[in-house]
Structure formats: structure tokens, C-alpha cells
């Protein structure tokens, strides 16, 4: 069954379209990133630290100029057009973005004039819901609270699209779960979308519809999470099971005295001897095995 079929009866509007995004730095290059995010879905961007997730987000926000490639954000294809639709865009960035001495009140006072749809009551509710202390200066807040404050500000002007860079990194498990529920509520009407980057994939695995996997500035996969997870299986077996053919096919092979583990394309997992165990994978395992595979390739 193809997913295109499922969605074919609904005219889909893409809130983000990226085609061939490329940006060269002295020691790093982002190459040929392409993806689309339709209205009503959650998309996760995964990959190790330094893979290019933040650079991709910065390009979307026109904080860096791409060397080549097309970006469409909320219909805006030029930097000026993208800036014009900022009211419909809520952003949380990784790292500090407010002056040290600002408290909740100052953040609201500073941002409200810029967003015609700023909802002071909603902002107050969000701050209360997320237990953001009113009297604490921004610099004295924990990393998690700083992220929450940015999230509250991002949601407070009723955006259509949320772009979040590592929103779960500083949050405790309960706050992470609350955030994910909030994001699902956000997209529930089918008109709103979320793009978030993370290297903590466990939460993402369930709620994300699409995933973009980047490693070393290169796009490894873009598509439905289920398809990515269905494309590989985890194989485990004893030392004798590791035939040369299998060894050549396995990604990120780890050998130990009593056996081996590794990743295998799902199709290749069908005709294995019964003694080899195959298991479904998680996004985290996928990143670990692919990462190990890349390291091994470098060493050889």
C-alpha cells in the first residue's frame, strides 16, 4: 500500500518545501537536503550532533544564506516573503535568545508588539501550565525552563507552523511527555505542522509522521517513520552464523566472543538461517548502527 494513495483525496498544502539545500563551510558542508512537510503533520529531524540539523533550521529562518537550493516556508519563496509570514511561524532555537535580565513579563512586553496575533492570556496560561517561574531572570533559569519559555512565546502568537531545535534536550521525562501531547494537540485540526530536530529519538518515534535523517551534512533518509523503521532489521547471531556474505551486508557490525549484532536491510533478512534472530529496530538503534558503520568505513 502506498501512502500517496491515502492522502490523494485531500489537496495537500506543504508548509515547508526544501529542494537541494546546500551550504559550504570551511570544515563542514550541508549537501543537497530535500524534504516537504504538509499541513497537519509532525516531522522529526534526526542525526548526530553536528550533522547539520541546526544549519538546516537556520537556512529555513534565513539566518544563513544557502549556497544553492530552494526554500519555501509558509508559501514564501524569497527571504522578504518568508519574513512577512513570521507571524504564522513559532520558533524555539537551541541556546539562549533573550537578554540575561528579562523575566517572563519582559519577554511578553518585548515580543507582543511584533506579532499582531499575540495572545497575552494564552502566553500567561502556557507559562503557568509549564511551571515557568515569573520572578526568575532568564539567565538564572534552568536550560529546560529556558526552552519552555521559548516554547510559550512561540505558541503565544497562534502560529501555523512550529520549528523547534532540540526542544526535548533539557526537559525531564514528564515535561517531554507533556510537550509531545501539546504538539499532537497543535496539529490535531490538520492545518498546523511541527518540524523538530532532536537526537533523543524515543519520543519522536511514536508521534512523528515524517523523519529526515541527516548524517555528516548528507541526507540519509526522508519519508514516513514507519517506512524507515520497516526498511531495516536488527540481526543477532552466534559466531558461526556470520558468513562472509552476511558480514558484507551487515551495517554497523559489532562482534564479540559469543556472537554478533548488526543492521540489515529488511529484504535481506528474509533468507537467513533460523538460528539468526531478527528484531524490529528503533530510530535510536538505527542511528547507532549507521554511526558505527560510518566510523568503521573511515577506519578501513
Amino acid at each position: 500500500m502506498s501512502m500517496n494513495e491515502v492522502n490523494s483525496d485531500v489537496a495537500e498544502e506543504n508548509l515547508i518545501t526544501v529542494t537541494g539545500l546546500t551550504k559550504q563551510y570551511p570544515e563542514f558542508a550541508l549537501r543537497d537536503i530535500s524534504f516537504q512537510l504538509p499541513a497537519g503533520y509532525i516531522m522529526g529531524m534526526i542525526g548526530p550532533n553536528g550533522a547539520g540539523k541546526t544549519t538546516t533550521i537556520k537556512a529555513l529562518l534565513d539566518m544563513v544564506r544557502p549556497d544553492s537550493g530552494q526554500l519555501t516556508l509558509l508559501g514564501g519563496t524569497t527571504p522578504a516573503a518568508r519574513v512577512a509570514c513570521r507571524d504564522d511561524l513559532g520558533v524555539q532555537l537551541d541556546g539562549s535568545i533573550y537578554p540575561d535580565t528579562w523575566r517572563v513579563k519582559q519577554v511578553a512586553a518585548a515580543l507582543a508588539p511584533f506579532f499582531p496575533q499575540w495572545d497575552a492570556a494564552l502566553f500567561a496560561d502556557l507559562c503557568q501550565d509549564m511551571a515557568i517561574p515569573q520572578k526568575t531572570k532568564y539567565k538564572d533559569m534552568s536550560r529546560g525552563t529556558q526552552v519552555k519559555l521559548q516554547l510559550a512565546a512561540a505558541l503565544a502568537h497562534h502560529p501555523r507552523l512550529l520549528v523547534l531545535d532540540e526542544p526535548t534536550a533539557g526537559l525531564d521525562p514528564l515535561a517531554r511527555d507533556e510537550l509531545l501531547t501539546r504538539l499532537q494537540d497543535f496539529i490535531a485540526d490538520g492545518q498546523h505542522s511541527v518540524l523538530l530536530s532532536t537526537h533523543l529519538t524515543a519520543d519522536l518515534e511514536r508521534i512523528a509522521d515524517y523523519v529526515l535523517y541527516i548524517r555528516d551534512g548528507r541526507q540519509q533518509f526522508f519519508g514516513h517513520v514507519d517506512d524507515l523503521l520497516g526498511a531495516y532489521v536488527l540481526v543477532k547471531g552466534g559466531p558461526a552464523d556470520l558468513t562472509p556474505a552476511l558480514q558484507a551486508a551487515v551495517i554497523g557490525l559489532r562482534r564479540y566472543g559469543e556472537g554478533f549484532t548488526g543492521l540489515l536491510p529488511a529484504a535481506a533478512g528474509d533468507d537467513l538461517p533460523a538460528t539468526v534472530v531478527t528484531e524490529p529496530i528503533t530510530l535510536e538503534e538505527l542511528m547507532i548502527y549507521f554511526g558505527r558503520g560510518a566510523h568503521d568505513a573511515q577506519r578501513n
Partner: peptide, 12 residues
């Protein structure tokens, strides 16, 4: 405090 990033998020 990375305020250039803040400015970049505003409709400016």
C-alpha cells in the same frame, strides 16, 4: 545572549 537569533525570528 544570542539576540541576533531573536531578531531573526521576528517579522523584521
Amino acid at each position: 545572549r544570542g539576540l541576533d537569533a531573536l531578531y531573526a525570528l521576528l517579522p523584521l
